[in-house]
Each structure stands twice: as structure tokens, then as C-alpha cells.
Amino acid sequence: MSTLVLATRNAHKVGELRAILGGHLPGVEVVGVDAFDSDPDRAVGDVVESGVTFAENALLKARAVAAGTGLPAVADDSGLCVDVLGGAPGIFSARWCGRHGDDEANLRLLLAQLADVPAPHRGAHFACAAALVLPDGTEHVELGSLPGVLVAQPSGGGGFGYDPILVPDAERAPGGRGRTCAQLSAEEKNAISHRGAAFRAIAPAIARALG
């Protein structure tokens, strides 16, 4: 069985990407970088995300993992881009409040910044860049997007990050139920999400690389 390493220690993300990629990559074992933490020769440390685009940050992470493990590596970088904020938080989504990974504080700050913005002007989209890097230096990047609008109050207990405040356009269309990303099932979210789109797009390149 071939092995593909995801540049994350987040078990939630590993599970999500396994679900997205599973049907496209039969016979491929998908693992997180924590699978190598006990191997000093292949352990991978944290990567400084110094890029100025989602694609640059995804490539930085994938390059580090491919170099450290000697295996094909995939990384993604994603975030929320708000129209009236000129695309912010963007690459700073995970640390918008000044602390990395504090989802609740990030959410509170963003909602406060948008408090006076009327509903017709609360357009936003989730963006994702997925990067594949092979040990021989081959690189491939694909992008995905999930457009929608931001609501004033969080709804739903699923997902993570800004999921509780973005209602995808598909949920606003005729027949939709107006649910936020956090109110969708994992299967529903994966079918339309920015991350799902980016990883489904890159799956053929992964399949070719792994034979």
C-alpha cells in the first residue's frame, strides 16, 4: 500500500481528508505527520507559514513534510475571505484575534467588526489551496472555494473555525434550508466545501504520482 502524508496533526482534518480522498485513491494509506513523531529521522517540526497566499503556505508545509519523511506529502491552507474587509481575514483566519487557533475569539472579533454591515453586504467565501509535493521536487497546486454570506449569530455545533457563521450559496438557493456550514452533516459539507473541491481536484495528480 502506498502512503500519503498529510501536513497536519489535527485528527479532525485527517479524518475529513480521508473521507474526501478515499474514493479517489484506493489502496493509498493517508496518515498525518504525527505518525512519524516517534521516528527521529523522519519527524517533522512545525512549519512557519510565511507565505502571503494560501498556495504559498500550503507549499511550504508540503515541502517540509516531503523532505522530512521522504514520502509524497499533501498540505492545505485555507481561510475565510470577507468581501467588505477586502478579503480579510484570509491567510490570517486562524489567528485573526492575535492567537493562533482560538476559534471562539476569532469568531467574536469578526462578528464585532461586521456588526454594522447590513445583510446584503455580508458576502464572503471560504478559500482553500491544496498542494502536493513529491520527494523528487515535483509540485502541484489546486484551489477550491465555497461562496456564501455571513450571519450575525453563530448557528450549529458541527465543523470548526468560522463554519457557524457562513451560509453557503447552495443553502440559500431554492430548495435550500438556510443552514450554516456548522449545521451540515460531514457528508453534506464535504460535497460542497472549499477543501473538498481543492482535494478532489488534486486527487488525480496524487493518483498519478502514487501509480
Rank of each mutant, 00 (worst) to 15 (best):
R18N: 01
G68Q: 10
H194R: 11
I206Q: 02
F54W: 03
S50E: 13
P89V: 07
L6Q: 00
L110E: 13
G87V: 13
A131V: 09
S38Y: 03
L71Y: 03
G148I: 13
I192P: 05
G90D: 10
L143D: 12
R200I: 10
R18S: 01
P120R: 07
P89N: 03
V82A: 04
G144Y: 04
A94Y: 06
I202D: 02
A191P: 10
A124S: 05
N10M: 01
I192G: 09
L60Y: 10
V65E: 00
L60W: 12
A124C: 03
C81K: 10
F54L: 13
A119M: 15
L146M: 14
E104K: 15
P204W: 04
Y162E: 11
L134I: 09
D37S: 14
V133Q: 02
G45W: 11
L132H: 01
V48E: 15
A35S: 14
V149E: 15
P174M: 14
H24S: 15
L59S: 03
G70F: 04
V5F: 00
S193F: 11
D76Q: 01
A62G: 10
A201T: 05
D34W: 01
R99Y: 09
L166C: 06
E104M: 12
L210T: 03
A119T: 15
A66G: 06
L80K: 04
S50C: 05
E104I: 13
T3W: 04
M1S: 11
V30Q: 00
R195C: 02
R208Y: 06
D39T: 07
L109H: 13
E142C: 14
P174R: 14
V167H: 11
E56N: 13
S78G: 04
C181Y: 09
R18L: 00
D46S: 11
S93P: 04
V33L: 02
R177Q: 15
I192W: 07
A11H: 05
E187P: 11
D76W: 01
E49I: 07
S2G: 06
R177S: 15
A197L: 12
Q113N: 14
D102W: 10
V74K: 00
R42F: 02
S78Y: 05
L85N: 03
P174G: 12
P204E: 07
H194P: 05
V44G: 00
G51H: 03
S50H: 08
C181D: 08
G211A: 15
Y162C: 12
A112M: 06
T3M: 12
S185Q: 12
A94G: 06
A197D: 09
D116P: 08
A152P: 03
G70Y: 08
A43P: 09
L166V: 08
S50L: 10
G178E: 13
K61A: 02
E49W: 03
I165T: 08
N10P: 08
L110P: 13
P204N: 04
G22V: 09
L59R: 14
G101A: 08
I20V: 15
P147C: 12
P72M: 01
A191R: 15
A182P: 10
L109G: 10
L110F: 11
H100V: 13
L132M: 09
A75D: 01
G79Q: 07
A43F: 02
G159T: 08
R95C: 06
A209W: 01
I192M: 13
V117D: 09
A152I: 06
